[in-house]
Design a protein around this nucleic acid. Structure first.
Lengths: 269, 269
DNA sequence: TCATCTGTAAAAATCTTGTGAACGCAGGAG
DNA sequence: CTCCTGCGTTCACAAGATTTTTACAGATGA
């Protein structure tokens, strides 16, 4: 049970890259009052470190970064589509602001700016994540013979653990939460790994294989993760039809005649 | 292979509530150039009508609404969580902007403002909104016996999947979304493949044939894709004339068994 | 009737996915 | 401090699926 849920909204995790100590201090005061977690960064931080901070928003004054500001913004926005990026700059031209917004910046504020407005804009940018996430409280999710317990970061079949690693569990949970919906690889990667998938990355496939292995080991007779060629994966527990039964009938006519359930473990295009 | 994806995102549907005709006109020019669909509204429009317009974003000058502006903004933002709302006002105080942003407004621009920046901000807001809710809304599209489910990248007839590949599905979805409108090959190719069609490319024809095949297999008795000689294709589900059907025995098997030379496409002069 | 345009089918070219194994890294044990 | 072990990442292939190309016959409209 989460006691720290003081704020019905959600506590926003904010990082600030700015050397205007006055502004940063005033801002920190406000955000603290709002129950946010704020951290000030010295300069350009590698994207993966930002991921590790699990930020909701990043406020950045490009002046701090000098010439590398544009490149950094582009990198950040490209790799972390879920991170709200707000630029807070001194003088700027329309062309600069347009360039920034096109790059993926969510909002561009002019300095000096009232801290209250900055807070409101950060909030507006972060607002999208309001999607109900009752996962922490929701009871164990049961699917087929599988029981997914987010409180244990583990899945079980008949009481025995699948021994999933963290990534494996997160992937399984994401797929299972999607409830029969096809998820594209990019979307999966984005949500599990936290940043944009590089072209040609096969991590998702590899982890799906690991999951399938562990699932089949403890729950043979069920098929859980289905491949959609050219698209992605879909979670949907299906009992494997006793393969022993009817290997005789002709598949073609049968297929045309009745709305057969998708054959087990089959690749659905 | 030139990947000049003109439309990385989708085309944005924008509505404007503003009586500054000069600004609106200039804006319309820019948005049109960007391939967006823009519409100007006279005043406060009921939320359900806004829903019907399937908008991505709404640009609004509160001055047009007078005293009801705040109430209207609150109503809109509360009822249409998927709509990006941008306020573009004349003079405004920090308190007003903060109030608006807290209400749910996504961005607040000061007038006069460069139309290019307005466009960029609308784009930024739409981008964020879109990421927040990938595909939850689009309910299944039903046409004739056909049910197109974008959450599964698949179409069904009576619960049975057509087993469409990704391209086939995208083509079908494009045609079906066009609702009875004739689409030229070039336009189809541009939107499904993402780049310009080379002269003499028959890909569209080939995929239309594949679609027709799969459609007829599961839904004989209906004609979905119609050819317009020298132009392109049009999606419009029509029951085939009763004379042709009426096989006393099982229609499904029969249809599946022999590839009847029935013209798959009704040619409309 | 002729020049095009479209429907079909099948071969050829590409792209995707499943899989096994090597690699590198970080934390824990000894 | 070094060695081991678990975990995540990347690579290389093979097996398949899908897409593109090609060729030809049937349609269409002038």
């Amino acid at each position: 049970m989460a006691l720290q849920n003081v704020n019905p909204q959600q506590t926003i995790r904010l990082a600030v890259i700015d050397d205007d100590s006055g502004f940063v201090t005033v801002l920190a005061k406000r955000t603290e009052a709002a129950g946010w977690q704020q951290r000030t960064l010295a300069g350009a931080i590698p994207p993966d470190e930002l991921v590790a901070m699990k930020l909701n928003a990043l406020l950045i004054d490009p002046a701090v970064l000098g010439d590398e500001a544009w490149a950094y913004l582009e990198q950040i926005c490209g790799m972390l589509p879920d991170l709200g990026v707000i630029v807070c700059s001194g003088r700027s031209t329309v062309a600069q602001r347009v360039r920034g917004l096109r790059l993926g910046v969510d909002d561009w504020i002019a300095k000096p700016c009232h801290p209250e407005e900055a807070v409101a804009r950060i909030e507006a940018v972060s607002r999208r994540r309001r999607r109900a996430r009752p996962q922490a409280e929701a009871g164990p999710l049961v699917a087929g013979e599988l029981e997914i317990r987010s409180d244990r970061f583990q899945a079980f079949v008949g009481g025995t653990s699948l021994d999933l690693t963290r990534r494996e569990f997160e992937l399984l949970q994401l797929l299972a939460d999607a409830r029969g919906q096809v998820l594209e690889r990019e979307a999966i990667y984005q949500r599990v790994w936290g940043y944009a998938m590089a072209h040609g990355d096969r991590s998702v496939d590899v982890f799906v294989r690991k999951l399938r292995q562990k699932l089949e080991k403890l729950s043979p007779g069920w098929s859980y993760i289905h491949t959609h060629f050219g698209v992605g994966y879909r979670f949907d527990p299906e009992p494997l039809d006793g393969a022993a039964i009817e290997p005789l009938a002709e598949p073609a006519e049968q297929a045309a005649a009745e709305p057969q359930p998708v054959p087990s473990g089959v690749v659905v295009p």
